[in-house]
Design a protein around this nucleic acid. Structure first.
Lengths: 144, 144
DNA sequence: TTGAATGCAAAGTGTTTGCACGTGC
DNA sequence: GCACGTGCAAACACTTTGCATTCAA
């Protein structure tokens, strides 16, 4: 059987579907961001894109990442000290597990989210739109 | 009746108890950080400290904040774009509620944390040490 | 007295911007 | 063709660092 609902396509295809003006640079960046479960810094995106398109500039990387973020195709995450990381897995809601020693970040899908609530006095008149959970610990390779 | 257990004292007192070398600058910064439910940037700490001690320098503020963080008396948070914020409420475990429009951050104590777990396949061989929850929404003053 | 904290200024990261040139649609 | 994306370099925002001076213990 085939899926009744359309699967989220590749990032590049989603961008074309939005009739987002496509250039070699933008396509390359989108391809870099199509690897699974990555959380790259702008500099890492730049390096990877540059190995395919040597004349690409940092400015274009930053501009493009900002565009993707404001389109909601990519999410900025600040889970580790250092530069902002870009999470392209925006179509699939997920949370993160971070190794406190090596800084590795992996996507996770926790259980029990529905039971997470705020006390009314904490919530005040605030309307909650999203909840973000970060698990921190030591990954397998970082146990002493 | 008095508390059987010693209450967490003021930050300044906790620092003295550690026999941390006290100076006018450090005491002033600790006092700035003693206000409840604050999440100041380094610059804001600098400004407030400077109104009491005009000759204090940014370097001292950054040095002192880094010291407090490595002592575990203050926690760095990155919940909003912009500079790092410093949360002095390190003695009392808590989570955060962030207004997506105005950026206001308040401390909260959610229910249902115990039920939050990772699927074994997500967790792998990682030992979880802490969980951090961020609620995002619009505060009362930011409803359109 | 003495090792540690401070202030200053310079340097280091990470990110944004202005503008002339190039290019997808 | 023209609006918009790009590259470059300069500017900007935030933070760290080296060193001479000052100070808490």
């Amino acid at each position: 059987v085939t899926n009744a609902r359309a699967e989220p396509k590749l990032l590049v295809d989603r961008l074309r579907a939005r009739s987002w003006r496509m250039t070699v640079q933008r396509r390359t960046i989108a391809e870099v961001l199509s690897a699974p479960d990555i959380h790259l810094t702008a500099e890492q995106v730049f390096d990877r894109a540059r190995s395919a398109v040597p004349e690409i500039s940092r400015a274009t990387v930053y501009n493009t990442l900002a565009d993707l973020v404001s389109m909601g195709e990519v999410v900025e995450v600040q889970l580790v000290p250092g530069p902002t990381r870009y999470d392209p897995n925006a179509g699939t809601p997920h949370h993160h597990l971070v190794c406190e020693r090596c800084g590795k970040i992996v996507d996770v899908h926790p259980e029990g989210l529905a039971a997470l609530t705020l006390h009314p006095e904490d919530q005040g008149d605030c309307k909650i739109e999203s909840i973000e959970v970060t698990f921190r610990g030591r990954c397998a390779s970082c146990h002493e």
